[in-house]
Simulated assay, not measured.
Amino acid sequence: MALLTASGLLVVAGPADAEAAASCAGRKVRTLPFSTGSVQVHKRGGYVCAVTVAKKQGKTQWMSVSVRARGGRPVVDRGRFKYHAGPVTVHAGQRCVWVEGEVGRGSVSSGWILC
């Protein structure tokens, strides 16, 4: 009986686990909403982390997240996912970052932020 109960709890906890996997370390400094999702931006020390989260989760769809420190190359995660793209992390130090996210046909681009 305990095994069945534990199994039931794991099924219930499934989406929460997916959401926990999408989180970045540090404190959330920005949420960039758009029509089909949002990009959550976190900062810890000199590191910036971003994850794109879909509004309608559970359906496989195109998603991407990108974060780039000024003067550096973007770190990107893109593909077909059910819940989120990322997290991706860059060492920005005191530099500005540019964050982009996409879910299906919706997208957001931050411009230079956290300067």
Rank of each mutant, 00 (worst) to 15 (best):
Glu19Cys: 01
Trp98Lys: 08
Gly72Met: 00
Ser109Gln: 15
Ser7Glu: 13
Ala22Trp: 01
Thr5Phe: 00
Val53Tyr: 02
Gly111Cys: 09
Glu102Phe: 00
His91Phe: 13
Lys43Met: 10
Thr89Asn: 10
Lys55Trp: 00
Ala50Ser: 07
Ala6Asn: 09
Cys24Tyr: 01
Val65Ser: 05
Ser23Arg: 14
Leu114Ala: 02
Thr52Asp: 14
Gly8Phe: 04
Ser35Gly: 13
Val65Ile: 06
Gly46Gln: 08
Gly71Val: 05
Leu32Asp: 13
Phe81Tyr: 13
Phe34Pro: 09
Thr52Arg: 08
Val108Asp: 13
Val76Lys: 10
Leu10Ser: 10
Gly106Ser: 07
Ala22Gly: 08
Gly26Gln: 03
Val48Tyr: 00
Cys115Asn: 13
Phe81Asp: 03
His91Glu: 15
Arg70Leu: 14
Gly58Pro: 01
Cys49Ser: 11
Gly26Leu: 02
Arg105Asn: 15
Thr36Val: 00
Val90Pro: 01
Val29Ala: 02
Trp62Leu: 15
Gly71Ala: 04
Leu4Ala: 10
Met63Ser: 05
Ser7Arg: 12
Lys28Pro: 15
Pro87Val: 01
Arg68Asp: 10
Phe81Arg: 05
Thr31Lys: 07
Val48Glu: 01
Val11Trp: 02
Gly79Tyr: 08
Gln57Trp: 06
Val108Phe: 13
Gln61Met: 08
Trp98Tyr: 13
Lys28Asp: 14
Gln40Val: 13
Ser110Asn: 11
Trp112Arg: 11
Glu100Thr: 02
Tyr47Arg: 05
Glu100Ile: 01
Cys96Thr: 14
Ala92Ser: 11
Ala6Asp: 08
Tyr83Val: 14
Arg68Thr: 11
Leu4Pro: 03
Ala22Val: 04
Leu3Tyr: 08
Arg105Leu: 13
Cys49Gln: 04
Leu10Tyr: 03
Leu114Gly: 03
Thr5Gly: 14
Gly106Glu: 09
Asp17Thr: 13
Lys43Phe: 03
Arg44Cys: 09
Ala25Thr: 11
His42Cys: 14
Gly79Val: 03
Thr31His: 08
Ile113Lys: 12
Arg105Met: 13
Lys55His: 11
Gly58Ile: 01
Val29Asn: 03
